[in-house]
């Protein structure tokens, strides 16, 4: 099975590889795994308090090319989006963009799960975070 050009591009030049400070109140971390292939994916977002916009996204994935490409693409899409916009990203968007074959759809599911886990982690930290501008405490 051949990978699409877009998958190969992300695989060979992954965007936004790395880590953000997990203990930062504005950072949300999602770690998810797919037991059928043993992939593990960590995705982190950093949200700007004043604007509510994601201005940093990083990932670290150990898995197949499609899993790496899915998470690389996800971090590209996350930057510049609000948390609510990010929550609306669907695995099917990733499948379409990367032309993933049916056997690799679970890689996109993993990326969607990672986005949601990161956002939920960020939101869970909200209780101890200063309220964002314009939001009543």
């Amino acid at each position: 099975m051949a990978y699409s050009d877009k998958v190969l591009d992300h695989y060979n030049n992954p965007r936004n590889v790395g880590s953000l400070d997990k203990s930062d109140q504005n950072v949300g971390t999602g770690i998810v795994g797919a037991p059928e292939c043993g992939d593990v994916m960590k995705l982190q977002i950093k949200v700007n308090d004043a604007t509510g916009i994601i201005d940093e996204a990083k990932f670290k994935t150990f898995g197949c090319g499609s899993a790496i490409a899915s998470s690389s693409l996800a971090t590209e899409w996350l930057k510049g989006k609000t948390v609510d916009e990010a929550m609306a990203i669907k695995n099917t968007d990733i499948v379409n963009e990367l032309s993933l074959p049916p056997v690799k759809i679970h890689c996109s599911v993993l990326a969607e799960d990672a986005i949601k886990a990161a956002i939920n982690d960020y939101k869970a930290k909200g209780a101890t975070r200063k309220p964002a501008a314009g939001v009543e405490a």
Binding site: V32, G33, A34, P35, E36, K42, K60, F62, L110
Partner: peptide, 15 residues
């Protein structure tokens, strides 16, 4: 399973 049956601490350790 959608990853829900893998404990978070195992994933973190593997990472």
């Amino acid at each position: 399973q959608r990853g829900k049956d893998v404990p978070a601490d195992l994933l973190e350790e593997v990472l």
